[in-house]
């Protein structure tokens, strides 16, 4: 069996903010009727997290459950647990119309951390999204575009940000974030 690797091998950029590829983290995309308690309660129980409301993400330890669309969630969890969780989901959702697929190696994840204003500024330069602390608080989850590619962002409980994009554009996103977070690139917006 070949060794799974992240797209950029843990690349890091230190600038006004720190941009780092996250260590490999398991991801499961879930689709179903979020308004159906049979689906939402089963997912919440298996994930061990409250079901996030519209545009929110639930967090506990290494696990994240993010709201992607009215019928889609993304579950992030430690990579070794994916197979077991998929089994438990299949059991808990037996008879409920749903889809649960592992997308661990189809997505790339980045963490943008450091001085809060610099972190928000680095992202705000690339996405048409209001990153002010009042509008984008911890627990907010938002899909949009990052420069020219689709991406999702969320604010962690500690105020740092997570960024998710397709694996095929991981290098583009990392370079775009690195330029945006350059140490002499502050504009003092937040």
């Amino acid at each position: 069996m070949s060794e799974p690797v992240t797209p950029l091998g843990g690349a890091v950029h230190e600038g006004a903010a720190r941009v780092a590829e996250m260590p490999r983290r398991g991801m499961i995309t879930l689709r179903g009727d979020l308004g159906d308690p049979a689906f939402s309660e089963a997912v919440a129980e298996v994930a061990g997290l409250a079901l996030p409301g519209r545009g929110r993400v639930s967090a506990e330890g290494e696990t994240r459950l993010g709201w992607m669309s009215p019928d889609e969630l993304i579950l992030m969890l430690p990579a070794p647990d994916v197979a077991a969780v998929l089994d438990r989901l299949a059991g808990a959702l037996g008879g409920v119309h749903h889809l649960a697929v592992e997308v661990t190696d189809a997505r790339a994840l980045f963490a943008v951390s450091g001085e809060p204003a610099a972190v928000r500024e680095s992202l705000a330069k690339l996405a048409p999204v209001d990153f002010s602390p009042a509008a984008f608080e911890p627990g907010t989850f938002r899909r949009s575009r990052l420069a020219q590619v689709p991406a999702a962002f969320w604010c962690e409980p500690d105020g740092s940000f997570g960024v998710m994009c397709f694996r095929s554009v991981a290098e583009y996103v990392f370079k775009a974030l690195s330029v945006s977070a350059a140490s002499d690139g502050r504009v003092g917006m937040f």
């Binding site: 519209r54 545009g55 669309s69 009215p70 048409p128 949009s144 575009r145």
Partner: peptide, 12 residues
């Protein structure tokens, strides 16, 4: 109307 997100044109 699904996300409740107010976005600008390039997101759509």
């Amino acid at each position: 109307p699904y996300c409740g997100v107010a976005g600008e044109e390039t997101e759509f």
